[in-house]
């Protein structure tokens, strides 16, 4: 009985730790993005609230919480209220299977640094991330506004199209690691990260991850200068905040997934594993921000062409080639 209680307490502890760290990182990613974008555009970015603007996330939260929680008159009330939650929760749920460190030994107990090591971890990630589209679509549909609906439809078709290549680009990884479990995938990259072994899969996965996170150059669902705010045009206050935080949580989660699948997870010389993991995730997030500062938004036909005519065949060919090479190597 006490054994079960200790296990339960450990899982709860890990959940709280992840929840705190991810939310903290998401809040400060907003600030980091604004600062880096500012510097890249020869501005300073937020620097008024607290030293170097470090209290800016707190100020943003207070502002969002004290704003009116507005529901448009002809909107579908329940779906309108639920949709932002779907976005934020699905982003957080993915973190359940992400291993962020090797197994620790605390008081003689083996504590794996992952909430649950599912043997179908990759599929779990694909399933949960395919749920994220419902937040965008239902939010856009329930607002009963043309801009929101257009944003929702765009988000839907974009995410469905890129999910295919996303899944297919992971197949070579699974073939090389011979497991669906994310821990096994990290363990398989002990010596060489998969990014070097299979750069094509890495490229396709990275582009699809950008598309799944609805960020520039794939931010067509929100497209400020065409659709006002896209699917979140009608949202205000903390519900808008949930969409916003969901996007940044998604950034952390996708950064961790890139790290786990291709950058070798927590493996690295000299530094402790946890630091390595954090460093790699932050590097991927910095890359996201850099891309946002440098790239223009794709046109819609370009988006679909890239997804269906380039990335999908490329990842299929990559599966065949990887399979052939693995077979040849025995």
């Amino acid at each position: 009985m006490s054994e079960m209680l200790v296990t339960l307490a450990l899982i709860l502890g890990k959940l709280l730790f992840i929840f705190g760290v991810v939310l903290f990182m998401a809040a400060y990613l907003v600030l980091a993005e604004r600062k880096i974008l500012g510097r890249m555009q020869l501005r300073y970015g937020p620097n008024r609230v607290g030293p170097f603007g470090l209290m800016q996330p707190l100020a943003d939260v207070i502002k969002l919480l004290t704003k009116e929680d507005f529901v448009p008159a002809r909107a579908d009330k329940w779906l309108f209220l639920i949709a932002p939650g779907i976005t934020a929760v699905t982003a957080l749920l993915v973190f359940a299977v992400i291993p962020f460190g090797p197994t620790l030994e605390i008081f003689g107990r083996q504590v794996p640094l992952v909430v649950v090591d599912l043997n179908i971890g990759v599929l779990y990630f694909l399933g949960v991330s395919s749920m994220a589209v419902y937040g965008v679509v239902l939010g856009g549909w329930a607002s009963n506004s043309k801009y929101s609906l257009l944003g929702g439809v765009r988000g839907l078709s974009q995410m469905v199209s890129y999910e295919l290549s996303l899944g297919l680009s992971l197949v070579p990884v699974i073939m090389m690691a011979r497991s669906f479990s994310l821990t096994d995938i990290v363990m398989a990259q002990q010596s060489i990260p998969f990014m070097l072994l299979n750069p094509v899969a890495f490229g396709v996965f990275f582009i699809c991850v950008l598309a799944e996170s609805n960020r520039i150059p794939f931010d067509l669902p929100e497209a400020e200068n065409e659709l006002v705010g896209g699917f979140h045009t009608e949202y205000s206050g903390m519900r808008f905040g949930l969409f916003f935080v969901g996007e940044y949580i998604n950034m952390v989660v996708l950064g961790s997934l890139v790290t786990v699948f291709f950058l070798g997870g927590w493996h690295g010389p000299w530094l402790p594993p946890l630091l390595w993991f954090l460093f790699k995730v932050l590097a991927v997030c910095a890359m996201f921000i850099w891309i946002r500062a440098s790239m223009p938004r794709l046109r819609y036909d370009q988006l679909m062409n890239l997804g269906w005519k380039i990335l999908l065949p490329l990842s299929l060919v990559n599966i065949l080639v990887t399979g052939a090479v693995l077979l040849g190597l025995g």
């Binding site: 179908i120 599929l123 749920m131 419902y134 679509v137 839907l156």
Partner: peptide
């Protein structure tokens, strides 16, 4: 997992797309 990915994540999303 396949049930969620294929049915909830792809087929129902397409249904929703057509309806919208």
């Amino acid at each position: 997992a396949l049930q969620v990915i294929v049915y909830a994540g792809a087929i129902m999303v397409l249904f929703l797309f057509v309806i919208m």
